[in-house]
């Protein structure tokens, strides 16, 4: 489902020194897998995730996700890919203020060519994460765990085959984090391919396979 090889990425820091974050990293994730990528802070986990999700285009190497070649793809093609093929879940949820939970969930709809009845499908997506009752709340009226559920419902709204998570439980306490992890496991059982980058053992413990990012390589 996800295939990447020879990924390299260097950042220029302020003083003109360059920092190689990825140097020839490769990975392969099969359909229906739940894989965790671990590494210490600053090892390049988020960077890797952005490349795999088509959010970053400035790198070397090849990436194919769900049969789509990402390196060298046009901005329009990458936008369509992010809209339909992957869902993102972030550590800080990144909900849009001023929109209700349901409207947040339906956000991808605005950038796609999809049909009507978005409100009903948003409610269905919220049901899947157990939050249908709070569909009309604003993000500010929700707890951290609830916000992350809304974010997950948004990521799944257009039924992408792949979910990419960046420290999905990083801002949640133990019990709430455990609920989110359970949710991921359930979604994975239903067929979703999940790649989560994290430095938390509780996430990697739930994964079927754990990769380590070290010195710009995946092992």
């Amino acid at each position: 489902m996800i295939e990447a090889s020879g990924l390299s990425k260097t950042f220029e820091d302020g003083e003109g020194k360059s920092l190689a974050v990825l140097s020839g990293a490769s990975l392969r994730v099969a359909r229906g897998e739940l894989v965790a990528v671990m590494g210490r802070s600053g090892s390049g986990k988020s960077t890797l995730l952005h490349i795999l999700g088509g959010l970053d285009t400035d790198y070397a190497g090849q990436v194919t996700v769900a049969g789509q070649r990402l390196d060298g793809a046009s901005d329009e093609a990458l936008a369509r890919f992010r809209n339909t093929t992957v869902g993102f879940v972030f550590q800080s949820f990144h909900l849009v203020s001023g929109l209700t939970a349901a409207e947040n969930v339906a956000l991808p709809e605005l950038f796609g060519a999809h049909a009507a009845d978005a409100p009903r499908r948003a409610l269905e997506a919220l049901e899947r994460v157990g939050l249908a009752a709070k569909a009309q709340r604003n993000p500010a009226q929700l707890s951290g765990g609830e916000r992350q559920r809304v974010a997950i419902a948004r990521a799944l709204f257009l039924k992408p085959p792949v979910l990419l998570c960046d420290e999905p439980t990083g801002n949640l306490d133990g019990a709430t984090g455990a609920e989110i992890i359970e949710l991921f496991q359930r979604l994975n059982r239903e067929g979703l391919t999940i790649l989560a980058v994290t430095h938390e053992d509780r996430v990697s413990a739930a994964a079927q396979r754990v990769l380590r990012l070290d010195q710009g390589q995946l092992v």
């Binding site: 992010r82 339909t84 990144h94 956000l107 950038f111 796609g112």
Partner: peptide
Amino acid sequence: ELGVMRAVGASRA
């Protein structure tokens, strides 16, 4: 927020 929109399918345009 604009970054979030890009993540859920907005292009630069």
